[in-house]
Amino acid sequence: MTMLSDTQTRSKESESDFGFWLYLMSDAILFGLIFATFVVMSPNLAGGPGGRDLFDLANLTLQTGLLLASSLTIALAHHTAANGRSIAATVFWMVLTALLGAGFLVLELRELAQFVSAGAGPQRSGYLSAFFTLVGTHGLHVAAGLIWIGTLIVQFMLRPASPAVLSRLARLTLFWHFLDIVWIGVFSLVYLPELI
């Protein structure tokens, strides 16, 4: 009976993993279409400022550094949890991930607020509409990820040994790496061409 129950649990988790991969594929299409729209819209400045006039390399480097570092820390969180190390270590890495992600978001929001106050808000031109939407969609995903991390931290402390919670952490890790990959796309397609 216990055996059966274990296989049932395992197969349920593998179904959840598979389903989550499908969701990520769907989300990748969503980002792909926003990227494509951005490319189509990028010449449409309508006399407004372009990326060259707005982007700040220092801020971008810091943002990117925070997000990439958070990808490492979430991987460490999953690694410690999967190897049955102490809960404290797992929670530590998760908290660190959340802080790095929150730092990324703060820098992003500050940058976007600067653009708006400089008269380069999303209403200014087609280019800026696409820019704000692309960066904002990524930012919304990061914010959702932060809520998810917060929930999981609580669940890890309440039910340290639960396989369901561990399996959720595995999917959160996937999600977080996915957001990293999308950011690398944003970095190289949106920012880099304007800054070189």
């Binding site: 729209t37 189509v40 819209m41 449409n44 309508a46 407004g48 209403q123 031109s125 087609g126 509409s129």
Partner: peptide
């Protein structure tokens, strides 16, 4: 008030 598909300010309705 964004400009994805408007006819002014760099929108592109065909997109």
């Amino acid at each position: 008030g964004l400009h994805f598909f408007t006819i002014d300010s760099g929108g592109n309705a065909m997109n």
